[in-house]
Design a binder for these strands. Structure first.
Lengths: 270, 270
DNA sequence: GAGTGGTCTAGACCACTGT
DNA sequence: CAGTGGTCTAGACCACTCC
């Protein structure tokens, strides 16, 4: 039914209308949208069509649903800057400091801008044989024994995961220090840089390969991601001063709350 | 109707089933899914519910729809690696080479792995007053005159946009060379590095701030993105050897076909 | 012309929240 | 208890492509 002056799908009118109201600020962040029933009556369309429009708004991150309270204009999330260029150097410098200083601040606190007691940190260790993918990155044969370490940092208040990483180290490189196989030593003061330092390894180069994708179902609920939020996946490869790949990490970060900052210093002319 | 042995939504059974078939390889990339009607009969649910499941599969990038041919298992797209760490240095080095050498290969070809004649390159220039956002990045007063340059690189065959960037230069810095205001000189051999070289500017540091988000409606159709594909947005800030910000660029890349690779060289111990 | 997915309607019941 | 969004059904018509 209804006038067909418009050739586009019925719900487009509602979609455009709401989108305009939001981007123009007529509907401010935090404001509630009318209920689906009300919208259906207002635009004289069925509730299914209303839901189509709202889905489009969700997918583009403009609104979020708090069931069963209603649908609200989304407050743009604050992005935490992660600056690997400086961060990795900072970590390396800390590795040779005395324990007292290494123990001061962990990397997660430094970067998230949160205090130690606002964060829950969790580490799981497991000896594994390297999958094909990990092996090829590490430059070892598939099946070679590696130590898998899974790190999760959560906000204490909400228990939402802020960042999650899986790290792989060939066990052969680190077996001279049995402490490195014991997860209960985490959080290790001075992080991986210091752990490797105890077995005589110095990191020379780190390569971050950054990709973006939609989260898996698990990641979505773990990180409390709203619909239409992508994630960063960073593959971090650390090479030692002897040219060996010593660690591969896969880091997943919520795409709406993270910003990655890389600084490239160019060589001077002349 | 139907047995309620399962507490989850009706379409979950179909969703899990199809997801397994795809990840296990039972349904290979390129294979067609059964039609919505067939699926509805097979799982004994309504077509709307089938569509819910298919939408979830699309959103997680597992299938794509070629209307009205059918729904197909998606072939994982090939990611083109973009390595700014080397790329920016390469561009800078080229700036002082003779014209003949600068003219050889452009940056877009080098990085996309495609030949010059497979790409369509388009540039638009416009003098503007700086928006608040651009001005704050450039470190100038809002309203200061800037040159906006919009670059679009398309695949010649499909006309799909491979990358799009908007660059802003304060006109004051470059007014000594009128050629720099003429878009018909694009593609300029040696790119921005050489353009700035002609007005005596040497770039010292470049900072890339990488974020990820869902594309706007326009970006989605321009880049021919399938549903559930995020984009990278890179804010590139170039600083000259005198410490002045000379260029701000905003680069948007398709998230399913791009990979960003940054290399961090650490200082040696001792 | 057959078959596909896109859109749409007009109903219905549910779990959950806040009052 | 009222009101929300989530799920679901059983129909319908359409534009489009491929044969």
């Amino acid at each position: 039914m209804t006038a067909a002056a418009d050739f586009r799908p019925v719900y487009q009118r509602e979609l455009d209308d709401l989108r305009n109201q939001i981007t123009s600020g007529q509907l401010a962040p935090g404001d509630a949208l009318p209920s689906e029933e009300e919208l259906a009556q207002h635009y004289d369309i069925s509730r299914s069509s209303v839901r189509g429009a709202i889905r489009a708004l969700r997918d583009s991150g403009l609104v979020e649903v708090h069931r069963p309270r209603g649908t609200f204009v989304r407050t743009p999330p604050i992005r935490t800057v992660r600056a690997p260029t400086e961060r990795y150097q900072w970590e390396k410098n800390r590795a040779r400091l005395p324990l007292a200083e290494r123990d001061q601040t962990g990397t997660s606190e430094r970067e998230s801008g949160l205090e130690k007691d606002e964060l829950d940190f969790h580490a799981t260790y497991e000896r594994q044989s390297a999958s094909e993918q990990v092996a090829s990155k590490l430059g070892v044969e598939p099946g070679t024994e590696v130590l898998q370490r899974i790190y999760e940092t959560r906000r204490k208040t909400t228990q939402a995961v802020i960042g999650c990483s899986r790290s792989y180290l060939p066990t052969r490189l680190i077996e001279s220090n049995p402490d490195l196989f014991d997860a209960s030593n985490e959080p290790w003061p001075g992080a991986t840089s210091h752990q490797l330092y105890t077995v005589g390894i110095e990191i020379d180069t780190i390569t971050d390969s950054v990709t973006t994708r939609m989260p898996t179902v698990d990641e979505k609920s773990l990180m409390r991601l709203v619909d239409g939020t992508p994630v960063f996946e960073i593959q971090k490869i650390s090479t030692s001063t002897t040219g060996t790949v010593v660690e591969v990490s896969i880091i997943v970060l919520p795409g709406d709350r993270a910003e990655l900052q890389y600084t490239i210093q160019l060589q001077r002319w002349e």
